[in-house]
Amino acid sequence: MPTYDVDSLTPRDLARIVKSAVSPRPIAWVSTTSPDGVDNLAPFSTYNYVSSTEPVVHFSTPAVEDGERKDTPRNALETGEFAVNVVTADLLESMDQTAAPLPPDESEFDAAGLERAPCETIDPPRVADAVVTFECTLYDSMEIRSGFTIFGDVEYVHADESVLTDGKVDATKIDTVGRLGGPFYSVSDPLEFERQF
């Protein structure tokens, strides 16, 4: 079995190993509004939750790119608000379009032709066609080496009727898109397995 000393690898090669092995990675499709009122929408595939009963979610991005923070983390820091929309198979192409590097005064919602829906507790809009959205307020942020992580307190949850069973969110009804290494994605295909422990 090949082994690697991380110091012997280029940053690109090391990142490829990590991103391919840590998968599938859920995608945070984060909507924010700038202090100037421009709605921003961008996907981040370093995303998860760190607390579920008192929900806190987090997403990460490069600390800086070309000497500046990306629009999404900058907006989240400056306004203290953001929404995390769940990406499903029917939204994959639209999600990809929102990864385009637009200037801060242009909205990815408009560029991708996505309908906005209002949030209840925060100013940024949510993706109208997302089956689940978390409305978040800024909990904290942390810079770790070349990465920057935003933590959000989940204040409100939107869940479409189509993904509910007996009033509860049903994972088997959400065809969640995950990010794999390279140009690959996955769509959840539930495997029934009864935990023993």
Rank of each mutant, 00 (worst) to 15 (best):
R145E: 15
D36I: 00
D140F: 03
E108P: 12
T32A: 02
D189Q: 14
M95N: 02
A159D: 10
V163I: 12
F193N: 08
P11Y: 02
S94M: 10
T72K: 10
D105K: 01
S188G: 12
T79Q: 04
V57K: 03
S31R: 01
P73N: 03
N85E: 10
V154A: 00
I144W: 06
V86K: 05
L77W: 02
V157M: 06
K173A: 07
D96W: 14
V86C: 06
A117N: 10
P2Q: 11
L77Y: 05
D36M: 01
A21D: 04
D36Q: 14
S107E: 08
T172P: 09
R126K: 14
F109T: 08
D39I: 07
A112L: 13
P190Q: 06
D160L: 05
G181K: 10
K19L: 12
D96V: 09
L77K: 08
T137I: 05
A15S: 11
V84T: 02
G67R: 09
S51N: 15
D110L: 01
V57Q: 03
T98E: 09
D7S: 15
V84H: 04
I17N: 01
D90A: 01
G181T: 09
M95S: 05
P183M: 01
L91G: 07
C119T: 14
R12H: 14
T165W: 06
S20L: 07
E81C: 00
D110W: 00
S141R: 01
E161K: 08
D123S: 14
S146C: 03
S31V: 04
N40G: 02
S34Y: 05
I174T: 01
D39F: 12
D110F: 00
E54D: 13
R16C: 02
S146D: 13
D71N: 07
D160R: 11
R74D: 07
S60G: 13
R12T: 05
D39G: 00
F134W: 08
Y185W: 12
S23N: 00
F134P: 09
V84L: 03
F59A: 04
S162G: 11
P124C: 05
V38Y: 04
A76E: 09
P104T: 04
N75I: 02
P125N: 07
T133Y: 13
S31H: 01
F197W: 11
T53V: 06
D90K: 11
E78K: 08
G182L: 05
A112G: 11
K19S: 14
F44M: 01
P73C: 01
T137W: 10
Y4T: 01
A63G: 14
S141L: 07
E108R: 04
M1G: 12
S186R: 10
T137F: 08
R116L: 05
